Amino acid sequence: MATSLQEKAMCPVCLDFFSNPISLSCAHVFCFDCMQTWVSKREDSKLTCPLCRESSEKPPLEEWQIRTLTLLIKQHGPLLELSLHVRSELQRFREDMTLDAATANSLLVVSDDGRSVRCAKTHYDTMEDPRRFTHLAGVLGTPCFSSGRHYWEVEVGEVKEWSLGVCKESVDRNRKSDLSSKDGFWTISMKAGAIHANSIPESRIPASPGLQRVGIFLDVEMEEIKFFDVGNDALIYAYCPLSSLERFCPFFLLVLPGERDSGAALRIYP
């Protein structure tokens, strides 16, 4: 019952309670601000639904029924407290993900179960493979995605410096640096105790001292990826739009062995 009410009162774009909800002619409902942002990022002037891509033939109408339902749920929130977290809503999109060892830099050690990766002190005798990252201490996750909504969580634990997110399937595996969106990487990075969004220009975001697990939500149709601080149930950063004719691959990166390396591992949760 709580889940059903929650879904009826939440915008499919921002995954939060409706704010000034509007209905398109296709009957899909969104927050007014979410639709305004969506329209402003489109190259054409048509009012197109973010979900089904149907063009609306009439102006959106305010959904007073949804507004009323949203208000009631907010008023009785304590009764549904366990069901009203954004992260709980994202669980239905959770992926059973593993690391693709064939793409891992030769200084990375992927666990036998394919769920964790750490840096080694010496190079492993690995076979040459064009899929492998040769300079960056990176590895891809599997599966990769060309449509739909997908969610996964990564335990960063004691790893001092890392990058997480997605990249185009065709990114240059021989590159040495520049994990920017123009090069096909949409990631956040932990550097010197602060989080950096590898956007253009780069953004610096204060990191919670207790950050232990990062939630990553990819919505291919909405052309966005969001990063969450799972422990604090808080949004860290969002990229929108991200667009590619290729598949998006989960991306994991550690710092190569050195003074800053603790031997700690990144782990896909659970």
Rank of each mutant, 00 (worst) to 15 (best):
T142R: 10
P130V: 07
N232V: 05
K46T: 15
G231I: 06
F133G: 01
D112S: 09
V230K: 10
V171T: 14
L5W: 11
L245K: 03
L266G: 09
R92S: 07
H150W: 04
L61T: 07
E224V: 00
G258D: 04
A101D: 11
L24Q: 07
D44T: 15
A234V: 05
C249R: 00
A104H: 03
N232K: 09
R175Q: 14
M222F: 11
E223N: 02
S181Y: 01
C249K: 05
A197M: 02
D125E: 14
D229V: 06
L254N: 05
L69C: 09
K46L: 14
R213W: 04
R213N: 14
F30D: 00
K191A: 15
R175P: 09
G141D: 11
S189F: 01
V39K: 06
E202S: 07
R92T: 06
V156Q: 09
N174V: 10
E161N: 12
V39S: 10
V156A: 12
L99S: 06
E202Y: 02
S262N: 08
K176P: 03
P50F: 09
M10L: 13
L84K: 02
V29P: 02
R213P: 08
G258Q: 05
V166N: 00
P59E: 14
L218R: 02
E128L: 09
D33F: 09
F18S: 03
F145I: 01
A194I: 10
E153Q: 05
N105D: 00
D229A: 06
I216Y: 00
S243A: 08
A264F: 09
D219Q: 10
Q65T: 13
S45F: 13
S4D: 13
L99T: 08
D172G: 12
L245I: 11
E202H: 03
S83M: 11
T122Y: 00
P60N: 12
L82Q: 13
S4T: 13
A207I: 01
I216G: 00
S208N: 07
W38Y: 01
Q212N: 11
E89Q: 09
S243H: 09
S23K: 07
C11E: 02
I195L: 14
S40I: 04
V166P: 01
C249Y: 04
P12W: 07
G165K: 01
E221D: 14
V86K: 11
F252C: 04
N105Q: 02
P270W: 01
H123W: 01
S40G: 04
G77C: 10
F217I: 06
S243F: 11
N174W: 06
H28M: 03
G77V: 04
L5D: 08
S244T: 05
E7H: 08
A207S: 12
L79I: 08
E155D: 14
A265Q: 05
H85V: 08
C167T: 03
A234L: 04
G258S: 09
V230M: 13
H135A: 10
S244W: 00
K182E: 06
I225A: 00
Q212G: 12
P12C: 08
A238F: 01
P201M: 01
T187S: 00
K74I: 06
R94Q: 10
D96Y: 07
E81K: 15
L80N: 13
S147M: 12
T48S: 10
Q65E: 15
A197G: 03
N20Q: 15
G157S: 08
S189D: 03
R213D: 15
